[in-house]
């Protein structure tokens, strides 16, 4: 069955520091490949819907950023959070800014780092689209 939302496929782009986060947190390709398939679900997300297919997500307070909850994968360590954002100027691409462990404290500095990454994306995304 194909619904209207099925026809809307977004691009999921990963900024380089997020790629480096994933290599550090998940040194084995096996786990990274699993995470990739989970994150690619963002392609089908109907923005604002309470779930990204079967994954939960939440907003990061005081920012335009959100977190995807990946904690039940095959061979993935418990409690991974994928930090992403959708630029207000273009919702055809979802940007992955970083990956962190849920157990890690999300400090103000950490928040500033991810907001900084999103600002770089906003400045340069037009070069890609």
């Amino acid at each position: 069955m194909t619904s209207i939302e099925d026809s809307r496929e977004r691009k999921v782009r990963v900024c380089r520091p997020a790629f480096q986060d994933s290599q550090l947190l998940l040194p084995r390709y096996y786990a990274r490949s699993e995470l990739t398939r989970q994150v690619l679900k963002l392609r089908w997300w109907d923005l604002g819907q309470p779930r990204v297919l079967d994954l939960a997500w939440s907003t990061i307070p005081e920012t335009d950023l959100s977190e995807l909850v990946v904690d039940d994968g095959f061979g993935l360590p418990d409690g991974l959070r994928v930090i992403f954002f959708v630029p207000s100027t273009s919702d055809t691409t979802i940007w992955v800014l970083g990956i962190r462990k849920a157990a890690e404290e999300f400090t103000e500095l950490m928040k500033a780092i991810y907001v900084g990454r999103s600002k770089i994306v906003l400045e340069r995304m037009n070069e890609l689209e």
Partner: peptide, 13 residues
């Protein structure tokens, strides 16, 4: 080896 700016995840895979 460190990727470029804004890699398309589906394409990377």
């Amino acid at each position: 080896g460190h990727g470029s700016f804004g890699m398309d995840l589906a394409q990377i895979e």
